[in-house]
Computed example of a mutant assay.
Amino acid sequence: MLVKTRGIVLNYIRFRETSIIAKIYTEQLGVQSYIVNSVRKKNSGSRIALFQAFTLLDMVVYTSHKGGITRISEYRSAYPFISIPFDIRKSSILLFLSEMVSRTVKEEEENPSLFAFLYQSIIHFDELQTGFENFHLVFLLQLSHHLGFGPSSGAEIVEQVAFSSHAAGAANAPTVLALQVYETFFDQLMRTPNQAGIPNGKVRRELLSVLIRYYQLHVEKLGEIKSLAVLSEVLSE
């Protein structure tokens, strides 16, 4: 059976000599994996570029009642990026966020609200010319609500992270008092993101570290976020 759907590429792995297996979050079918043949041939042009992180696609895909990996019948770009591929800061942020989505969104079923949020956020990010240094923080805070564990305040994030660290007996675990300085920043990011007064990259990285720990409390086996090191390096200033 063929289904027409929009899709958001999460990642891909190489498969055999010239093919890939792409993990894509689809509007109609949730998270799916597809074999895409011959996209790594020398004469395949820019087709492999269509399977980079968070690329937006229009597709016609095969489905099977048995589930598992299927194939894409047709695909094309639904929105050609105008800035992301040419800005190392933006591409690093997008790579990190695609990994976070890949590790947290698992369902193989339709979720119109979540899909719309992801799709519109990616386009908005591509269109931003300036003022996007907090985008990944705002994105993760908003995504958490779609995943069912969104915080109501900065204090909620801080308290959960601090108390969980101490309960686990973590060495040098931060206290609630030590983390309280971040409460206001989280509140600003949730309520007035465009006016969030985060002073520098160091504080931004610390906020992200706390936020990832918050995710780890709510997402089973979140695991190591491999793209985090690259993002931290690129956004070090």
Rank of each mutant, 00 (worst) to 15 (best):
M190P: 07
L57S: 01
L56I: 10
V101E: 12
A229W: 03
V105H: 05
I72G: 02
L10E: 08
H124K: 13
F54H: 06
G223D: 11
A167Q: 10
N111H: 13
R76F: 07
V230L: 15
I13A: 09
K4P: 04
K221A: 14
V181L: 09
A170F: 13
Y62N: 12
M59E: 06
E233M: 06
E237S: 08
I225Q: 10
F185H: 15
I20A: 12
L94G: 06
Y214K: 00
I8C: 02
I225F: 11
S236I: 04
S113C: 02
S64V: 03
V210L: 14
K66G: 07
N111K: 15
I21E: 11
H124M: 11
S113F: 04
R47I: 11
S121W: 03
K42W: 01
L128Q: 15
Q129I: 06
H218R: 01
N43H: 07
L29R: 12
A178W: 02
L29I: 06
L114F: 03
Y34M: 03
L97R: 09
H146W: 03
E133D: 13
A116N: 12
L94N: 13
R213L: 02
N134Y: 11
Y215C: 00
V234W: 07
I8M: 04
E156D: 01
V203K: 08
Y34F: 15
E156C: 00
L94A: 14
T175G: 09
Q160N: 00
Y79S: 08
I82W: 02
L50F: 08
D87R: 08
A116F: 06
S144W: 00
S209D: 14
F86R: 13
L143C: 09
H124A: 15
L179K: 02
N11S: 15
S91K: 09
A53T: 11
F163S: 11
S33D: 09
A78H: 07
R47C: 06
L2V: 12
L114I: 03
F15T: 05
M190V: 05
S144F: 00
G45P: 07
A168M: 12
E159K: 01
F185W: 14
F115T: 02
G148I: 01
L141C: 06
N194F: 09
M100V: 15
R204L: 05
E27V: 05
E107R: 13
A173E: 12
L179Q: 04
M190H: 05
K221P: 05
E108A: 10
K42D: 09
F15S: 14
K221T: 06
L97I: 15
I82M: 13
R204A: 08
Y34V: 07
Y79D: 07
P199T: 02
R71E: 15
L147S: 01
Q142V: 08
K106P: 03
E183F: 01
